[in-house]
Design a protein around this nucleic acid. Structure first.
Lengths: 200, 200
DNA sequence: AAATAAACCAAACAAATGTTTGTTTGATAA
DNA sequence: TTATCAAACAAACATTTGTTTGGTTTATTT
């Protein structure tokens, strides 16, 4: 059980070449199932089957079903954060920046695959431990929008948190009514921002 | 299996006086559990236990778990519809009416018990049959807001569906961040409407 | 008081659940 | 070649799931 005596020369770069090569596949399958059926209604056999293996084999890649959800969450947050930050790059003007962020957020949420949807919809009321793990990551993401709203030229009487909550709520809720082929995410985001700016 | 021969005199008002007296209790328990844990993660034994009976005994009141969810949905829609219609009663002015409806919607959703939350959050992606049953009722409710938005004095260039989707999205999403003791539902609704009106 | 029927219990049912175990496979490294 | 090790299988594990069955209590009606 004790650690082996370290060699004088480095154990030179473990070099486990194709290690865990099917992990992305499993994660994809999990994200798809979690999105379509929800976490509780999805079984390990469902996911394993989609990835072409048996349920037990998954435990070589993930120690539990909860860990799968956590991994999907983290990947989802990673993707949506990256998309928003890239969309903000080089954009100037506070309203333009907010609109760019909103459009990117929507694009990932509506046309960007299953991960982001799971992040948004599957707030884990299941386990308190899970919530403690995931809440900070979500909060960090929402801080991006907090800053963007802070930079808006609003009258001092306008409560900024209303602006943020209203916009993010409208954006996040869109996955319940959006159907592919309808209005494009960018158009929806532009429309929402226009309403917020009071242009009507 | 054939229906009994109808008597010449009415089978005079079945008069089952206190029949199904514990149905409300069961429904309450189900709504609470569905809200807190979600439909799939809630077991029949959970609900039965909360109502002080065994799981099997529930089948004298509801033929299946799905029927329980349907019943909770219907009761939730009934309550929220009633609250909004009562709030609209006597209110004049298109913006005032929209704000009154939004405030009532929020009040039921945030402080009005478990039924409405289940209606809003637990869109049944589980069963297609379930969805067909519940979707029309939800649509009928949203029509109230559709009409209210149609009555607003907006420039012809303003897409009305953006207004409706943005407001309802913001309202419905509020249950994810609202904590009792914070800003009152009426204040939140007023703030959102003010933003929509462009007063800032 | 007798009869009827609703409400409930106690126990079981088959199926599905997340997870564990022991073993086999196939590629890589010594 | 031989040893190693990740990856997967096959099978079982103990629980939990929604639901059914048959009998017993309880309340209402005749």
């Amino acid at each position: 059980m004790t650690a082996p005596v370290p060699a004088t020369t480095e154990p030179p770069a473990p070099r486990r070449s194709r290690r865990d090569s099917r992990r992305p596949q499993l994660l994809d399958a999990a994200a798809r199932r979690f999105r379509r059926g929800g976490y509780s209604a999805t079984s390990m056999r469902d996911i394993a089957g989609d990835a072409g293996m048996l349920a037990g084999s998954m435990y070589h890649h993930f120690p539990s079903k909860e860990d799968l959800l956590v991994a999907v969450h983290e990947e989802g947050i990673r993707r949506i954060t990256k998309a928003v930050e890239e969309a903000l790059d080089g954009v100037r003007g506070p309203w333009q920046r907010l609109e760019a962020a909103a459009a990117a957020h929507l694009a990932v949420l509506l046309d960007g695959g299953d991960y982001a949807v799971v992040v948004i919809r599957e707030l884990p009321h299941e386990s308190a431990a899970l919530r403690r793990t995931l809440a900070p990551v979500r909060d960090a993401y929402e801080d991006i929008f907090r800053r963007l709203v802070d930079d808006l030229p609003l009258s001092a009487a306008t409560p900024r948190h209303h602006v943020r909550l209203m916009l993010l709520g409208a954006l996040n809720w869109s996955q319940t009514w959006y159907r592919p082929g309808g209005e494009a995410p960018e158009a929806i985001a532009r429309g929402f921002i226009r309403l917020l700016r009071g242009e009507h």
